[in-house]
Design a protein around this nucleic acid. Structure first.
Lengths: 132, 132
DNA sequence: AACGTTTTGTAATAATATAACATTAAAAGT
DNA sequence: ACTTTTAATGTTATATTATTACAAAACGTT
């Protein structure tokens, strides 16, 4: 149950930034934004990101190489993620739909593989962009 | 119906290579392999890949930055893709499950977004790696 | 305090991807 | 046939994303 002991300084700095952001942040954009806080090298950012992803505090939006804070309070680990992505304005929202996650968590095919993790990205036009 | 006119020389060279491969290929690995065929620069490969993805002949495995040939003969465009990925041996298989694709193609949430595309990646251990 | 582990700092570099521009080829219209 | 337009190519340079390698510091035990 207690996977999440406490965050180190660097991890906290990066998490704060990602959580404050209204849009997905790229690693180097994070780097530029935390340089005044002492994180000077890409690796410091990537290491913090890796750990934050591992413990489920943030997720990586794979198709965008960008990171968002987890909005799903019960997300201990990043093992079942779904996003909606607007292809026009690039707005990304984490989908929190228990039916969907139930369906995917229990998905089985005939390959004999046991899935313990998935990542789903939906693409389309958000309401705003649709009406333009 | 006729989205697929014919492939250009570069596109065909890249497609042949990806189709022959038993594993996902990375862009620069493709580049090294087609240099004897005259494609000397990354951009030539990326352009061919872009087009091939666009017309559905290949798919990008986002979490791996790699490309696989489409095994789904009715895949005119890359608009609904699902993969299983072994986290140990990195084997990637395109999932061809009509129930799954039906479910995801008709998925709706309350965001007001109309989804026209999705990409899903399942992770786990394949049969072989599970038994090690 | 001594030990093992994790995190940090730092520099260098690898891997992935695109911008910009000139040229050539192919498709479509007249 | 020839012009126009569109798409693909070739080339160089560069931007972006991510990792390797190694030394030092901080942390948690015992």
């Amino acid at each position: 149950m207690q996977k999440q002991e406490h965050l180190t300084k660097n991890q906290q700095i990066v998490l704060d930034l990602v959580e404050k952001s209204s849009e997905p942040l790229k690693a180097y954009s994070i780097l530029f934004n935390v340089q005044k806080k002492g994180l000077k090298a890409p690796l410091q950012v990537y290491r913090a990101l890796d750990k934050l992803v591992e413990i489920g505090k943030i997720h990586k939006v794979e198709s965008r190489n960008a990171f968002v804070a987890c909005k799903n309070s019960n997300c201990q680990v990043s093992k079942a993620t779904a996003f909606s992505i607007c292809e026009s304005c690039e707005k990304v929202t984490e989908i929190n739909n228990s039916k969907l996650s139930k369906y995917l968590n229990s998905f089985q095919d005939n390959s004999g593989m046991k899935y313990n993790k998935y990542n789903l990205e939906f693409f389309g036009l958000c309401k705003k962009c649709k009406n333009k």
